[in-house]
């Protein structure tokens, strides 16, 4: 099924994607993404970093097949994504925990595996293995409401891992957490991924998170979103918290911030009332 020109090293390829929201020609029309192209290699951890509303999540949703872009194509493992998810290739972890509140943790894993058509006999083994990996095995019978936000997101992450797809798309998975929980979960994620050869696309607002986790950071512009620069982080996984103390870490972080500052200002300015001329 793979396209003739499929490059085996490329897991995700996005070509000239433009995305408009709202009715064409109406004042509500928004150009979210403007001619974005990017390639993500197999086994790579990539962060999409940018000001809010720049279309980071939109890229993720298009790659994940949740909707079709206005123009352009996305290819996953050599197959075109045309607004249809590829659950055998891709698992999603969303910002908010998407655990269904009417099922226990283990039941949530079961239906995730069921939806993907996994063999029923494997459901609980896989689920428990993934829960053990994030230290949540003793909470398998709990309902999501009985867990703290941090625990819920840990379970959510484990559910993304348990299906063992080669690609994991993470849409600000730690955004709802406090900074301390967030750092710990970031370290956990780095540990978990070192053992698996996964391709990760991770959307975030956090500069430190981006530098700490990624192999490459795609810094985006304010809306309409484009890729502004790509920053390489040459540090092997799993990463230890010591990495955050190195001068290199601060340098990279500052570099990202310098790139983002103007974009953030533009975003904020666009959200304000128009300023009278001459001020």
């Amino acid at each position: 099924m793979s396209a003739p020109d499929a490059n085996n090293d490329v897991a995700i390829s996005v070509r000239n994607i433009t995305q408009r929201f709202g009715e064409a020609g109406s004042p509500d029309e928004v150009l979210a993404l403007d001619d974005v192209s990017l390639d993500i290699k197999r086994g790579e951890f990539v962060c999409l970093l940018g000001p809010s509303g720049c279309g980071k999540s939109t890229i993720l949703n298009i790659v994940g097949g949740l909707f079709k872009p206005t123009q352009g194509t996305a290819t996953v493992a050599g197959r075109l994504v045309e607004g249809a998810p590829h659950p055998d290739q891709i698992a999603f972890v969303f910002q908010e925990s998407t655990l269904l509140p009417w099922y226990t943790v283990i039941e949530n894993f079961r239906i995730a595996l069921k939806f993907r058509g996994m063999n029923k006999a494997e459901w609980d083994d896989r689920a428990m293995a993934a829960l053990r990996a994030v230290g949540m095995a003793s909470f398998a019978r709990h309902y999501p409401d009985q867990l703290s936000v941090g625990m819920r997101q840990r379970v959510n992450m484990a559910r993304g891992l348990c299906v063992e797809t080669p690609i994991l798309l993470m849409d600000e998975p730690f955004a709802a957490l406090d900074e301390q929980t967030r750092m710990v979960l970031g370290e956990d994620l780095s540990q978990l991924l070192a053992a698996r050869q996964k391709t990760i696309v991770f959307v975030t607002h956090s500069l430190a998170e981006a530098v700490f986790l990624s192999d490459r950071i795609f810094v985006m512009t304010a809306r309409p979103g484009k890729i502004k620069t790509i920053i390489d982080v040459n540090e092997s996984h799993p990463r230890s918290p010591d990495f955050m103390l190195e001068p290199r870490f601060s340098e990279l972080r500052n570099e990202c911030y310098a790139l983002l500052r103007d974009e953030i200002r533009r975003t904020v300015a666009a959200q304000r009332d128009p300023q009278p001329a001459g001020t």
Binding site: G65, L66, P85, P87, F92, F94, E96, T98, L100, R116
Partner: peptide, 21 residues
């Protein structure tokens, strides 16, 4: 919407979505 999207991204059929979500 989030639950529907999550189910869809996991490959849930229309029937699965109705039954479980």
């Amino acid at each position: 919407e989030l639950h529907l999207n999550a189910a869809r991204s996991m490959g849930a059929s229309r029937f699965d979505t109705i039954r479980h979500v």
